[in-house]
Structures are given as structure tokens and as C-alpha cells.
Write a protein that binds this DNA or RNA. Structure first.
Length: 681
RNA sequence: GCCGAGGUAGCUCAGCUGGUUAGAGCGCAGGAUUCAUAAUCCUGAGGUCGGCGGUUCAAGCCCGCCUCUCGGUACCA
């Protein structure tokens, strides 16, 4: 690893349609920041790139809903996000945005080069066009009736009621949400990146040459590669984004996934220009190590699509590693922006001012490295009180207070070493290598634990040497003990620099010293005899139960609000006539047989006695009912529905079900237990 | 269903190419100690390594089947 001349470290670009929360921090920015701070401490040439992803349809929708421009939306959130990262000490060399001039230029040129060299395929397809608004409609801008559940407010990409993913062309009675008019089908041309052509290359590069990637990342890539890659559109009909820079592409922009990763390059260019440096070696020299820190939702883009783009361009190096983390849950539930189930960074600092490092510590110690992890406030409190306060803060305080007490703050001289001193120093020296090994293999939790071992070592050293006793009989011996204790404290300021930068700054204040570099970690001559240290203060404070309860209550409030929101009944459907209703032939029926349809999760194949006949019905209820439990059940069945084949079985009717907001299903049955075939009206 | 990742002490996790009594931190119990934010230090209890079968002199690690959790994908007339 030390062979690389320079390092280019990127962290996923957060989408600028909301603030950032602890999940973002734990999954991407804390690990990236730890890694980068470590490299800088070693004196490496490293650039740490961040920025906001500001294009794409969701931002335009948010803007429309709030009656402001997309630019207003991204300005607002870019500001909030950038500020949060700054406050938490995420030490980007540059934090820019994809709406910047530099980025538009860089992304355009990237596209132009690939286009000129024939790296894209062009395809024409039919898409919906709004003649009033004079533009093609993104999937999300089209609403209509879901062909599956008849929800009249399904979007062009998905019906939120039944969860089915849709194509706009599937919708019945499509409507443009821009003008309300009925959209028309119109031909449009788009450019595609032929990922399939890189399949063999990617297989070799990832599956053979990068077996060291994390199992979750490697496995996900393998899954994609094994199932075969397909050409992917790189442009969209939309007005918000980087315009497609070729003739006749009016009203078309680069698709966000194509534009966003180029943002890493653009932001590097911006940084280099400001520093008067050349950006190219960071992206084009084989002796540079490129590392992408991401969450698991971004694996395919960073491991397959972006590398394929870089390769097509030809000038670029490919990532050396893509440490992708899993997700962080909050109190046993998925973090959700829309449900406000999150700990927002800007709110955290209002409730816990100056406690950035506590959160950095807890998130680093509990990082979702190998599987989804859970953040709980109780754990947060325990780690603060039992680890940061009791082990780390306490040791620094002990050695500082004793130094004041015995020597008026002057570092005593190191005298003759006992065997135990030597053992302790050996232990101290060994920690550097352990932390390095962990960091270089992206095991951040483990690295943090190794750093904590240093504070534990300090506490143990004091407990075993007992300077407060020895001082009464052998003052010379105590000088050596305190010197070693202070050297350990100084070492803590180095070891924790990547993890807890605010705390190490405080230690330096207490010790009255400047910053050391990483290579000095393990040294026992960091503080010369006679050096005067400052008056000590506490590094960490206990967090009381009441503060934790307040946070729990805050979350419970969100939960209650959500439940209230969910229990509101969906709006009434459009009026219809009685004649329409009488067309429905609904009967009571009895389930005679039931079995799971093979190779499906939700489907049961039922044989139903309708009073008229016995017919087969396929029903998506397997998640609510077990086949063997519903035999003999009385149900309501819609008989005169056109038959339809599902998974090769002809379904001749539909069982009526009630569904609550959790998606649980229940049969509609007659309370008087009528015979099968009774008419329901 | 298919693909991927997981299921190891009460909790959060290590366990690298299979090798002696399965580890760490927190929590818990007992003891020591008082310089320190009742903090610290020592000792200890606690695990049929998701289940069943197999390969092997030897398996938490390899193979097969099953099961549960998370993610992707298919599926709900």
C-alpha cells in the first residue's frame, strides 16, 4: 500500500434534496475521513473529494411541490449539508457541487469524447410528451391508474399503493402532472453506454484481480456480472441537468448516474485550480490509488458503471478499492428521511453542542462494515460514559492532574526504567503497527479499538505503578512513572487524530504542544523534560439519562406522527353509476384447496367452490396466510373477471381482500355463514 | 423463487489459507484501590459457533439440505 505516489479518495456525493443524518456519516464520511486523516498524518499526497449531487428528477419535483426553482432547492440543501460536514470535521479538500460551471464543462467534455469516438449506441424509443408544457415527461411526472390495483394515483415508475414497478406506458389514463393534459407518445433519441461489451473485462478486473474487496461489495458485483449486463441510457428528456452536448439534443440532459461520478473529477479540477496544482496525476497516473467510499446502494455504480465509463474514456485509472458499507438502522428501524426516522446532524449539534467526537466515536465503533448495524441512544450513552469518559478522558485527566500536583505542570525527567516500564513501552510501540494494519484494510472498528487499547494501557500503568503511593517513599521513581504517563498521553493525541480530531486538539492544548505526525506514534520522547503543560480540563462529560430519554421521546413523536399519517384512509375514488356496480358478480365462496405457487413469495393457488362451479384462483396472499390454514375458509369472490394467466396458471376470478396500512391482508367473509354462491351486492 | 450478504457469550462484534482448553469490548458477579468525572485495576461466571447430515486424523471455518434476518430481482387481477 505504501508504494503509491498519491491518493485520490472520494466519498459518495449526497443527494441535495435533504439534510444528512447519522447513516450517511457512519456509512461513508466517517470512514473516508478517518482514512484520509491517517494518510495525511503519514505525510502522503492525498486529495479528499466530496460534493453535492444536485441534478435529477426528485429535485425538480421537490421544487415544484414547494413552488421554488430546482436551483433554490439545491442551494438550500447544499448549504446545510456542507455546513454539517464542516461541523463534524469531515476534512474534505474540496466540497463542491454538480451544478458548478467546472462540472458542467467536465461532464460535457467527457460525454463529447465518448460520443466522438463512437462509444455510445443511439436508440430511438417512444416516450410520453406533454404538448402543453412542450417537453418529454420523466416517469415521475406521469400519473395514471395502476393496471394492477386500479389506484388512480400511480406514478410512471411505480405504484406506491401496491408497490409494483411500472413503466409509464403501462398506466391507464396517463396524465401529465405538469399541465394536467393527456400526454402523447412521441419518438425520442437517447444514447446508451454498452455495458455488455465490458462484461468480460469487468469480470477479469473485479472477480479475478480484486478478490481483496469486501465480501459484500465483491458479492454484489458478482451477482450483477453473472446475471449479464445491458446497455444503459446515459441521457434523459429533462431540463434540469447537464445538457447533452451534441447537435439536435435540445431538451436532453445527462442522466444523473452518468453525470454524478464525473463530479469527483470536476471537483478535483476545481481544487487543483485553487491550489495551483495539476489535477491530472490524481486521476490518470497509474501510481495514484483511487478509493471510493460509498454505501451499499451505490455499489453497482462505482464498481461497474463508472469504471466502464472511465475505461471507455481511456485516460483514467480505475479504483483500487471500493469500500462499501452496509446500512445503519436507528433503534431497530430503517432510517427514513420521509418518515423523519433519523438523527439529523444539524439537530444533533443543537442537542449535544461540542460533542462531535462523541458521535464520531460511537459511529466509528458501530460502523456497518460487514452487515447492517443498529444505532441506539442507550448504546450512545454507554459508549460515552463507559469508554470515552471512564477510559480515555479519565486517563488523560489522571496524568495531567498528577503532573500539576507533583511538578506544577513541568514534565519530569525519565530516569532508570524498570522491567515493567520496558514492557509498557514495548506495548506502546506495538500499537502503531496494529492500527495501521487495520486502517489499510478498511477495518475501522478494529482500528479504533486498537487506539483505545492505548488509553487502557495508560490506566493499567498507573494502577500498577501507583505513583500516589510511591511518591511518599521514592520521588525519583515517580518522575519516571509520570514521564511515561505523559508520553502515553501525548501518543493518544497522535493515535486518535484520524478518529477524534476535536479531542486530540484538546489534548494538545492540555499538553501545550503542536501537532505531531503519525510516524511519531510510539515514541517516548514526545515531551521533553522541563516542558510545561497547561492546566487540565475534562475531555468528555457524562451524558445523563434525562438527555437520552429526551432523544427517545423525540423519536417516539416521529413514530406517532407517522402512524397518524398512515392510518388516514386513502381518498375516495371517482364516482360511478349503479349500473357499473351491477356488472360485478361477487359471491360467497369456500376455499377447498390451497397450495403455494412454486418459485413465488406471495402467490397461493386456490380451488374455490363458488356454488356454481369450482374454479382455480391465484391470489397474492401468501405473506398473510399459510395455505394449510385457509382450507374451508369462507371468502368473497369476484366471478366475472376476465381470466388471466399468472405464473402459467389460469386464474379465474379474484378473492376480495381488505388491506391495512402495513400491507396486511384479511378476507372479506359473510358473518352469517351463507352457502357458497350467495350473491353479494 | 432466483442472486448477494449475514446468523459466534445477555449486547455489539473478531476469528486471516480447517489444527492444541473458541476471542475482544460493553454488561454482570466477586476482589483490590483512591491520583482521577464512584472513574480505574485484577479475577470470574457465561457459548452443543442458526439446525441436520457429510468430507477429514482434525471443521465456527470445506460440501449438501433446511431455517431466520437484511439487500437486489421476479411475482399480488
Amino acid at each position: 500500500m505504501s508504494d503509491f505516489k498519491r491518493y485520490t479518495v472520494t466519498s459518495a456525493l449526497p443527494y441535495a434534496n435533504g439534510p444528512v443524518h447519522i447513516g450517511h456519516l457512519a456509512g461513508v464520511y466517517i470512514p473516508a475521513d478517518i482514512y484520509v486523516r491517517y494518510l495525511r498524518g503519514k505525510g502522503k499526497d492525498v486529495v479528499f473529494i466530496g460534493g453535492s449531487d444536485e441534478h435529477g428528477v426528485p429535485i425538480t419535483i421537490k421544487a415544484r411541490n414547494e413552488g421554488i426553482t430546482p436551483q433554490d432547492v439545491v442551494d438550500k440543501y447544499h448549504g446545510i449539508i456542507k455546513k454539517s460536514f464542516g461541523e463534524f470535521g469531515i476534512s474534505f479538500d474540496v466540497y463542491s457541487r454538480t451544478t458548478s460551471e467546472t462540472h458542467h464543462k467536465t461532464a460535457s467534455e467527457f460525454f463529447k469524447k465518448l460520443h466522438a469516438e463512437g462509444k455510445f449506441i443511439e436508440k430511438t424509443s417512444e416516450q410520453y410528451y406533454d404538448e402543453e408544457a412542450k417537453q418529454f415527461l420523466a416517469d415521475r411526472y406521469i400519473m395514471g391508474t395502476c393496471p394492477h390495483c386500479n389506484n388512480e394515483e400511480a406514478y410512471g415508475d411505480q405504484c406506491e399503493k401496491c408497490g409494483t414497478s411500472l413503466s409509464p406506458l403501462d398506466l391507464i389514463n396517463p396524465k401529465s402532472t405538469l399541465s394536467g393534459s393527456k400526454p402523447v407518445k412521441k419518438e425520442t433519441k437517447h444514447w446508451y453506454l454498452p455495458l455488455d461489451k465490458d462484461e468480460e473485462f469487468l469480470k477479469q478486473w473485479i472477480l479475478e484481480d480484486h478478490k481483496e474487496w469486501k465480501p459484500n461489495v465483491y458479492g454484489q458485483c458478482k451477482s450483477w456480472l453473472d446475471s449479464g449486463l445491458h446497455p444503459r441510457a446515459v441521457s434523459r428528456d429533462l431540463s434540469w441537468g447537464v445538457p447533452v452536448p451534441v447537435e439536435g439534443a435540445d431538451g436532453k440532459v445527462l442522466y444523473v448516474w452518468f453525470d454524478a461520478p464525473i463530479g469527483y473529477i470536476s471537483n478535483t479540477i476545481e481544487w487543483a485550480a485553487a491550489k495551483g496544482k495539476d489535477w491530472k496525476p490524481y486521476w490518470q497516473d497509474k501510481e495514484s490509488k483511487l478509493v471510493h467510499f460509498i454505501g451499499k446502494d451505490n455499489i453497482v455504480f462505482h464498481c461497474i458503471i463508472f469504471p466502464s465509463m472511465l475505461k471507455a474514456h481511456g485516460d483514467y485509472i480505475l479504483p483500487d478499492n471500493v469500500p462499501g458499507n452496509e446500512f445503519l438502522n436507528l433503534e431497530n428501524d430503517k432510517i427514513s428521511t420521509s418518515k423523519n426516522w433519523a438523527v439529523w446532524l444539524h439537530e444533533y449539534l443543537v442537542d449535544f453542542p461540542e460533542k462531535q467526537d462523541v458521535l464520531r466515536y460511537v459511529l466509528a465503533a458501530n460502523m456497518p462494515e460487514s452487515k447492517d448495524n443498529d444505532f441506539t441512544w442507550k448504546d450512545f450513552q454507554a459508549r460515552n460514559n463507559n469508554e470515552l469518559v471512564a477510559i480515555f478522558g479519565n486517563f488523560v485527566n489522571r496524568s495531567a492532574v498528577l503532573t500539576q500536583k507533583y511538578y506544577d505542570g513541568k514534565v519530569p525527567a525519565l530516569g532508570e526504567l524498570s522491567n515493567y516500564d520496558k514492557e509498557t513501552i514495548t506495548e506502546l510501540e506495538s500499537i502503531k503497527g496494529k492500527i495501521e494494519k487495520s486502517l489499510e484494510t478498511f477495518r475501522f472498528r478494529e482500528a479504533l479499538k486498537e487506539a483505545m487499547a492505548l488509553a487502557r494501557l495508560g490506566n493499567k500503568y498507573l494502577a500498577d505503578t501507583e505513583p500516589w503511593k510511591v511518591v511518599k517513599i521514592d520521588t525519583v521513581r515517580v518522575e519516571t512513572i509520570m514521564n511515561i504517563s505523559l508520553q502515553i498521553t501525548a501518543n493518544l493525541s497522535i493515535a486518535f487524530e484520524p478518529f477524534l480530531p476535536f479531542t486530540t486538539e484538546k489534548i494538545r492544548t492540555i499538553l501545550n504542544i503542536d501537532k505531531f505526525n503519525w510516524e511519531q506514534l510510539g515514541a517516548t520522547d514526545l515531551l521533553p523534560a522541563g516542558h510545561v503543560v497547561a492546566k487540565p480540563f475534562l475531555l468528555f462529560d457524562k451524558i445523563e439519562d434525562a438527555e437520552i430519554e429526551a432523544q427517545m421521546n423525540k423519536l417516539l413523536e416521529s413514530k406517532k406522527l407517522n402512524e397518524a399519517k398512515n392510518s388516514v384512509a386513502t381518498p375516495a375514488k371517482a364516482e360511478m353509476t349503479f349500473d357499473d356496480f351491477t356488472k360485478l358478480d361477487i359471491r360467497t365462496g369456500t376455499i377447498l384447496e390451497a397450495e403455494k405457487v412454486p418459485k413465488t413469495k406471495k402467490l397461493l393457488k386456490l380451488l374455490v367452490d363458488t356454488g356454481i362451479d369450482k374454479r382455480t384462483v391465484v391470489s397474492g396472499i401468501a405473506e398473510s396466510y399459510k395455505a394449510e390454514d385457509i382450507i374451508g375458509k369462507k371468502v368473497s369472490i369476484l366471478l366475472n373477471l376476465a381470466p388471466r394467466k399468472i405464473k402459467g396458471i389460469e386464474s379465474q376470478g379474484m378473492i376480495l381482500m381488505a388491506e391495512n396500512h402495513n400491507g396486511e391482508l384479511g378476507f372479506i367473509s359473510n358473518e352469517k355463514d351463507f352457502n357458497s354462491g350467495s350473491v353479494i351486492s
